[in-house]
Design a protein around this nucleic acid. Sequence first.
DNA 1: TCCTGTGAACCTCTTCACAGCC
DNA 2: GGCTGTGAAGAGGTTCACAGGA
Lengths: 252, 252
Amino acid sequence: MESSKLDQAPSTAKRSKASELKPTSGTPGLPEIARPDGTLEPRFNAIPHPAVRRLSLYLRQLETFQRKARRTISSRQLGESLGLTDAQVRKDLACFGQFGHPGIGYRVEELIGQVRHILGTDKVWNVLLVGAGNLGRALSAYKEFNAKGFRLVAIFDADSTKTGRKLGPFTIQPIREMGETVKKEQIRLAMIAVPADSAQGVVDQLVEAGVKGILNFAPISVKVPPHIALNAVDLSVQLEQLSFQVNFPTVG
Amino acid sequence: MESSKLDQAPSTAKRSKASELKPTSGTPGLPEIARPDGTLEPRFNAIPHPAVRRLSLYLRQLETFQRKARRTISSRQLGESLGLTDAQVRKDLACFGQFGHPGIGYRVEELIGQVRHILGTDKVWNVLLVGAGNLGRALSAYKEFNAKGFRLVAIFDADSTKTGRKLGPFTIQPIREMGETVKKEQIRLAMIAVPADSAQGVVDQLVEAGVKGILNFAPISVKVPPHIALNAVDLSVQLEQLSFQVNFPTVG
DNA sequence: TCCTGTGAACCTCTTCACAGCC
DNA sequence: GGCTGTGAAGAGGTTCACAGGA
């Protein structure tokens, strides 16, 4: 950690900058964070999962404030805009470092940079898509991904009547080419929008191809080996949750 | 409650069937559930939010088991298929009633019916869509909704070059017609797939039109009055979460 | 004054472990 | 044997309340 000694200097003793979190450096495994006394501790297993989820929302909100030319924002204002308490915002951010300025709040631009660094979206991620049906086509045309640091670089489909055809700037590739493309384009993330039946098979092939994280839109639960990240979005489940909430307004 | 007296009979004293949860009957507000002693208690404010989310996953999994012609399933098997413990499954289901059979497990078909009833998807919900862009078109063509009890009945867009055109079986309507259509078609749920800028305006108009639940796909946080249900799906946020999980495999 | 960061208290959710039933 | 439902224990997350800095 090239700058961790700064943390021993009295004036900056409490500051552990996000830029010093080096998840990919040194031995793989737990990231380490500098403590005020200069020692290192693995800190990231102490982070509440919900805090990570909210981090993305903070970033989105901060970007909105930035578009409105706001320079600083307090935890209260950031929280109100998301329906959270000020304490929640401060606790969440404090998991990752000390980003705030007492009496002032958080500097919007600075915090955006730090949150992007924590989330890993300060660098571009190459992403592939499997499934060129309705949902897949919508995903392939989704503009926001680029602004958020994600670049779609390849599209695959099992259906041989689709492979070879164009979809936007992409030629739909057969699944068997996945391994090669993943290596060539250094793809680490994949989105799958295929029928439920084929989902697990596709997931297995993605893992085999070397993908590290999968976003599953198929309406079925799939298994991945440990250390492969998995997120799922089931559109019907979302509506079901709404249905319940409408029936029981006090619970949802 | 037409059959609640059964609960007072010794042999069925412990059984409080989901079919007796009558959220929309009697005075609106807290649902009531029959207790063994025959009295009623509002029970639904004691339900963990995560349990409601998992309920949809249980249902999806049960439907998969049903397709495989499974008749019964244990909490252990249901949990394993979703990466949950057996105790978790039992506790979750026990929030809503006693559906299991000691020594046997849960009868698949029976439990599907009860979970659908709890979620409210044993009856069809009419749904509208705002936004006929890429994502909106994909949502309008999404087949799974129908099988899950949701029926898309109208599509709206603010863009006057789109209104009047056909999208599948629908004619894209101008937003000003929303109030009328909501009443005529008895629509209670809405999905919005519009640009971030227009999202809050559309939400306000949906609430004004009488919609009770909103599924927001716009990449921005929107506000609704209390007692209007709101769920949000932000595709970029999902990828961001993956990005973090890939960087810090032990946390996600 | 306004604001952050944080221990402590509080609350919610999950897991354990076992009684009771098939 | 297998299985559910559930009180109790434990883990995890949120809110409170305040010290300390700008």
